[in-house]
């Protein structure tokens, strides 16, 4: 499987898909940067700045980036006609999808690292207080863990939409909506249960320290999404919706040996 994940990353060479991730990662930083530069009422620190990046990722950017990336990776196999070549190796469709989803975990880590580097750069430019090695390392871990939780939360969406030819588009739109709804749920009673917000609860990133039952609910919520994602992946098949067009009359004739 490790070899297949490496191959998935190799397939992304010279594609624009990675730049979509880079651009959206930068967007989260830019929004945080704008807030920190424009908001004169709040005394911004590195922790608040990084917290904003986590929040922007969770509500607006990362759900759709994750679904789009995995969905496009699978769609790429269809549009470049490599899928049938891979299936005749043979590599099963579930194994191929699993390798893409696992490569997605590595890309999530890369995305988090990129955002952290850019975020730290912004903090230095803005001269925000709190630039310490320990705190920065903690921010990196929080950012990576939070993005990973969002990735798990959208895993079923990615696993399902990748099975349909062209399904990544619908999956991406749904992921935008799914992520955006977290704004209304976050901090409320159902925050721990809403998978996109579960990471925030689990990592204790909210305004108050969550109680143990809340953390358990969050863990359960993410566990359920992971389980659904795994089930969808294991049972995945290439769901080509197009029918073969043909309009010729039937004819049963001639001889056969």
């Amino acid at each position: 499987m490790a070899a297949m994940i490496r191959l998935e990353l190799l397939k992304l060479r010279r594609t624009s898909l990675l730049w979509v991730g880079v651009a959206s990662g930068m967007l989260a930083i830019l929004v945080s940067f704008y807030l920190a530069a424009a908001d004169r009422m709040t005394q911004y620190t590195v922790a608040i700045f990084m917290g904003n990046i986590v929040s922007n990722n969770q509500s607006s950017l990362f759900p759709f980036v994750a679904v789009l990336t995995v969905g496009r990776m699978m769609e790429w196999e269809r549009t470049s006609h490599t899928l049938r070549g891979i299936l005749t190796v043979p590599v099963s469709f579930p194994a191929l999808l699993a390798s893409k989803l696992e490569a997605g975990v590595l890309l999530t880590m890369g995305y988090s690292l990129l955002q952290w580097v850019l975020g730290v750069g912004c903090c230095l430019v803005l001269h925000l207080p709190g630039v310490e090695a320990g705190a920065l390392l903690r921010d990196l871990l929080v950012l990576a863990a939070s993005n990973l939780c969002v990735y798990i939360a959208v895993l079923p969406v990615a696993a399902l939409s990748a099975q349909f030819a062209g399904g990544y588009a619908a999956g991406t739109v749904f992921a935008v909506f799914y992520g955006f709804c977290s704004i209304f749920v976050e901090g409320g009673a159902f925050s721990a249960l809403y998978p996109i917000c579960s990471g925030t609860v689990l990592l204790g990133l909210g305004n108050s320290v969550p109680a143990l039952p809340q953390r358990l609910c969050a863990l359960l919520s993410l566990g359920a999404m992971l389980a659904v994602g795994v089930i969808l992946t294991v049972t995945a098949r290439d769901r080509q919706t197009r029918r073969k067009p043909s309009a010729r009359p039937q004819k049963a004739r001639g001889r056969r040996r």
Partner: peptide, 16 residues
């Protein structure tokens, strides 16, 4: 694995 095949148009990654 004992078969080599070419079905319809050649399927390769255009970026590689």
């Amino acid at each position: 694995p004992r078969i080599g095949s070419l079905i319809e148009s050649p399927g390769f990654y255009p970026n590689l």
